[in-house]
Write a protein that binds this DNA or RNA. Structure first.
Lengths: 118, 118
DNA sequence: CAGCATCCAAATCGATACTG
DNA sequence: CAGTATCGATTTGGATGCTG
């Protein structure tokens, strides 16, 4: 799903920063907890995830709900505005599925200038 | 068109780096010269523009044609692959036109927490 | 479990100066 | 005109350690 080869490595489309699009995608199927987002995203540090989450919350794309339980529980969920972004991300993924091989081939051919012939 | 308020300031959608999408947009109506890209883009330094152009060329999104004239002339033009990206960028712009006011309003409301009430 | 504070590395953007 | 080379400021992502 979010393995290093697929997304932001070569993907020419971004939504904001490096993680925003992936967070939104993770939230597509429903609310997720802080730790639940760290695993699939491979976001090693909570700081970066917090930054991303805060920025998303600031822009009204997600909501942050705190449950007063003993092990503190916080859930993040997409807003209506956040859902509209899903379509755009899907469009980006469709483009990638269709044209990324061509782009990668072109990139590979371009790199050959330095290592292959020259 | 490319005034500081519109594009990457608040725009949550990017194509690659800060300038790639704008370069592609500038090339939509036909080939453009190096200097012709610097004016509308407000890319102050040739270095940054060159980097963007090279990356785009590397990915097969644009072509670079050099004309052996006395004042050297170089033209950049969108490839077929580059054209496919136009649709995606257009989708991003449509999203921005429709939802950006909502996003900005949410952001503004969020900022009020710090300056207004607290 | 969720989040913050501090320090650090890397990428990016940018200004100045110079060449064919 | 088009592009390169060098240096600096800003931004971003990341690692470690600590708190409620």
């Amino acid at each position: 799903m979010f393995h290093p080869a697929c997304p932001s490595s070569a993907m020419p489309i971004r939504v904001g920063d490096k993680w925003s699009a992936m967070v939104i995608l993770c939230l597509e199927q429903g609310p997720r907890r802080f730790s639940e987002l760290r695993i699939p995203l491979r976001a090693p540090t909570p700081k970066v995830l917090t930054q991303t989450l805060r920025a998303l919350e600031r822009d009204g794309l997600i909501t942050r709900t705190v449950y007063a339980e003993v092990p503190a529980r916080v859930e993040y969920e997409l807003t209506a505005l956040g859902h509209t972004l899903l379509e755009l991300i899907a469009a980006g993924r469709r483009w990638a599925e269709e044209h990324m091989p061509t782009l990668l081939a072109a990139r590979d051919a371009y790199e050959s200038h330095n290592t292959g012939t020259g």
